[in-house]
Amino acid sequence: MVYFILKRMVQSVFVMLAVAFLAFSLFRFVGDPITQMTGVETSVKDQERLREELGLNDPFIYQFTRFTGDLLKGDFGFSYRTRQPVAKMIASRIPATLELGVVALIISLLVGIPAGVYTALKPRGVLTQTILMTTLVGVSIPTFVIGIMLIFIFGVQLGWLPTFGRGGTVQIGGWESSLFSVDGWRALLLPAITLGVYQLTLTMRLVRAEMTEVMRSDYIRFAMARGVPTASLHYRHALANTMVPVITIIGLQFGGVIAFSIVTESVFQWPGMGLLFLESIRFVDIPVMGVYLVVIAFFFVLVNLVVDLLYVAIDPRLRIKDVS
């Protein structure tokens, strides 16, 4: 067990290093930051001086080592665009993205799992067919179209919900949260639904497929033959076994939700990390982009580790050694 966790952690370090290397080497080809930072009136001599000061003339390996070294020390550098420390910029954006991602995940689980169970238990029902059709439509429409449609219906036509921004936020320590005011929730709803729709469909279809499989298994048939009450049969015996493989995919998808919230954030002008990344791309703000990618990779690695631990918590076969 301890060995298993340690092994995963060592692997994670290598993953992080690889991501840092990729991120850093990619951004050497996206354009020249100096031309973005300076205007036409800056002399070539000043541009050269700036280049030298920022260390852009150093060999690649040297720059990369400095980049990772600084990251490890907790020094994330300064943005070329705003001259602010990158750490502060990202930190101020993380709450918005995390809250959006987590609420989207919760929505997708709250709807996706029951829907998956229902469609698995009543495969021929009218409601099942309706759900399957609707989600098929939902999954085939791109995220930004769904976002724009929601804005059009609930924001423009009905005027129920705001169409951009985070609404009223509450400051708790260094964390700017929209979860503690009605206004914040109103602003959060549309983007969270937009972001969660794809995950919801996936969760539902996965739960449905796994559950159908589990319901055919011997231990469920044996439980039926023992007259185990239907509710326990479905939710205690079958659902738990269904969730074992489903958790992995949900975990991977959650990493994806955080990483690809870019589209949703830009549709709703949601001031999260994704929006910051988009702005940074426009200004070739290499330090911000690099750190953004590393932070996202860190989330992925963390979520995966948590999924592995959850696995162990759920499945006794991984937790307890065979005795006989």
């Binding site: 298994s217 011997d218 231990y219 048939r221 044996f222 439980a223 033959a225 023992r226 007259g227 185990v228 015996h237 738990a240 076994n241 074992v244 759920i314 499945d315 006794p316 076969r317």
Partner: peptide
């Protein structure tokens, strides 16, 4: 279960593993 019960072929798969 109450009056009629059943035993299956493969003991590896007929008990809920969780």
């Amino acid at each position: 279960g109450g009056r009629i019960s059943m035993i299956f072929q493969d003991p590896q798969t007929s008990l809920n593993p969780l």
